[in-house]
Structures are given as structure tokens and as C-alpha cells.
Simulated scan of single mutants.
Amino acid sequence: MQHPVTAPPIPERVRSLAAGAAPTHVSVAGSALPAAAVRGGVDAQGRPVLLVKPAELLYDLTDEIVVTVDLVATRAIDGVDRARGMLKVRGWAQPVPPEQIRDTAIAISERCPDEDLFAAIESRGPRLLRVDAAQVVYLTGQESGVLDAEDYFTAAPDPLLDAAERILHHVNSSHRPQLVHAMTALLGTPVPNAWIWELDRYGTTIRTAPDHLLRLPWPTPITSPDELEHALASLMCPNRH
């Protein structure tokens, strides 16, 4: 009997986390300077993009320099952002080429909007720096480890990531009573704090308590947003289909 794949491969999962993560701190290798707070996002290739303002660390960068960037992916639970994955990306920072600044700023603004991105496009103070990763340390609460650059960059985020995030947000914000009822019936005990924590083509992860995550795999991998929506609806309302 063939068992279902219960979770995405680690490289895919890390790329999915990175796609929705925001930079929080950057440090310079071999420097005694403390890590500095930083803003920005992650581009479509998985590279952290740092939005730095005058007088901030790395603002005067003209050549490559080795840095470590902390990325944090969060999930809003009852109105509070909770960390669901932390990444440390070590690699080479360099200015985004002038001809790529506009596209880069627009790309990261979709997940990490910031008014200073428009100023960077117009060269009015803030600059964009890009980090070409050499390795990525990941910590998700369930798994931890290190990916080298080849494994990280040859992987891709879940192809249903955008649809999954939209569906997840809709259920968590509008249909939690049904989710709580379904999880209570499934577990045979009240689960008043059930929230969808992860949703992907291989299954869903339910946060049933602050320190407990329940993974529920699909029978087979999902291949379209419609299938994903149907699978989640069947889980929440099993007698409806």
C-alpha cells in the first residue's frame, strides 16, 4: 500500500516560507557591528531584498559583502502575528542593478508593502540591496536544518501558494466556527482554538493549541486551486459532499 506524501519536500517548504517572509535583521560577516533592523522582502528567485535608508547599515554599499539576513514568516492568529518559520540566509549582498529596481520593488511590494519602495524606484533616498544566498538555515518549529544554495534555488514555492493563502485567510477570518466544529468532531474533544496554520497541495496543518500542530494530509496531492478549496471544504463539512 502506497502512503500519501504528508508534507512538501523541505526545499519546497522553505521556498514557500521565504516567499511570504519579511527581513527583520541583517549582520555583516566578520564585523563587530551588532545586527541591524531591516525591511524589505523576498524576490521571485528566493533572494532577500533589503530596503535600506540613508544612515542605515549597508546604505553606502557599492560592492559585494557577505551578510546574514534573518527572515520571519508569520501567521495572524486572533489578530496577533505568530512566527511560523524563521530563516537565516547567508550570502553576498550587492545593490540591485538600476534596470531591475522597478520590477524588484513591485514584486516584493505584493507581499511586503512599504511606501519607501516607491522612493527607491525614483532614487529618492532608500536603496534596494539583493542577497544571493550561499546557504539557508531554517527553523519551523517542527523541522530545522540547512539548505545549500543549489537545493534552495532549484526548488520553487508551492505552485498553489497564492491560492492557498487566500483560501486560508478566508476560512480563518470567516469560517472558524465550522473549522472548530470539524476539529472537535475529528479529535473527539473540544478544540476551541483551532486555526488553519498551513495549507498546501499535500495537506493542511491545524493549530489546535499554542504548542500543538496537527498535520492532515490529502489522499493525493492537489493540482489546482479548485481542488484545494474542495478538499478543505470536505474536511470541514464531510457530510456536505
Rank of each mutant, 00 (worst) to 15 (best):
T68P: 02
L87W: 00
V191N: 03
V96S: 06
P95T: 03
T104C: 06
A93I: 05
P95R: 06
S109P: 05
V89I: 02
G141N: 08
A134Y: 10
D158P: 07
I65Y: 01
D132V: 08
L160R: 02
W195M: 06
T140R: 04
D70L: 11
V66F: 12
E64P: 10
G141T: 09
A155T: 02
I121A: 06
L128A: 07
E56D: 00
M86K: 14
H170M: 12
R166F: 15
R111H: 09
T189D: 15
V66Y: 03
M183H: 01
V191H: 05
Y138L: 01
A149K: 14
P177M: 11
T189E: 14
V131Q: 06
F153Q: 10
W92E: 12
P98V: 13
V89A: 01
L58I: 00
L139S: 08
E143Q: 09
R127C: 00
E110S: 08
E122P: 11
E64W: 10
E143V: 15
G91R: 02
S144F: 09
Y138A: 02
S173Q: 07
E198K: 07
R166M: 15
V191M: 05
N172L: 05
A76R: 13
I77C: 06
Q94M: 12
P177N: 09
R90Q: 04
A149R: 13
E198A: 10
A182V: 07
L168P: 01
G145D: 03
T62F: 14
A120H: 02
R75T: 10
E122C: 13
I101W: 08
V69D: 03
I108Q: 10
T184Y: 07
A155N: 01
I167F: 11
V72N: 06
E198V: 12
A133Q: 05
E150G: 14
L61M: 08
H169P: 07
Y59M: 07
L187A: 10
E56M: 01
Y59L: 08
T140Y: 04
L128T: 00
H175R: 09
P97H: 05
R102H: 15
T140L: 09
E122I: 02
V180M: 08
V72F: 10
H175P: 05
